[in-house]
């Protein structure tokens, strides 16, 4: 029963990356909230202000990395939650595929939006 498992590396890396992204996200999410709710008031956000921030390459790349790590951390978390419920076999592979696709679309759309914001597109 407990003896035959699939390849071992995946679980290890997923666990490790979940933690590494967490460390980054603690800082990034905190920064994001402070900047857009306390430093800049959310109600006063306009495209101009957004563009001014996104024009700085440092801020732009931070936001893109933020998006990628958040997407991984969140979607991997959802996947873990579903495995907790005993998801396995074909069902599990289908769910993994759907979640990966959702993540890729999210990052793709997010990057597309970000490129609009810094005036590249």
């Amino acid at each position: 029963m407990a003896e035959h498992y699939s390849s071992f590396q995946r679980g290890t890396w997923r666990w490790l990356f979940q933690r590494l992204t967490a460390v980054f996200l603690v800082g990034a999410l905190g920064f994001h909230f402070v900047l857009l709710h306390f430093v800049n008031h959310a109600a006063e956000i306009s495209f101009m202000g957004t563009q001014a921030r996104m024009d700085q390459i440092g801020y732009f790349s931070l936001m893109v990395v933020f998006l990628v790590t958040a997407a991984f951390h969140g979607i991997n978390g959802v996947y873990n939650a579903l495995i907790n419920q005993g998801l396995k076999g074909t069902q599990r592979r289908v769910v993994a595929g759907v979640l990966t696709l959702a993540g890729v679309l999210l990052v793709g759309q997010g990057t597309y939006v970000a490129l609009h914001m810094n005036g590249f597109l």
């Binding site: 957004t50 997407a71 978390g77 999210l106 914001m117």
Partner: peptide
């Protein structure tokens, strides 16, 4: 965690108005 990942999708969706026009986004 579920709320945050759910919000991330909505967040990107709302910000996507920036791809239409700056005015629409604002």
């Amino acid at each position: 965690g579920w709320i945050l990942i759910g919000y991330l999708f909505t967040h990107i969706a709302v910000l996507s108005t920036a791809t239409q026009s700056p005015e629409m986004y604002t």
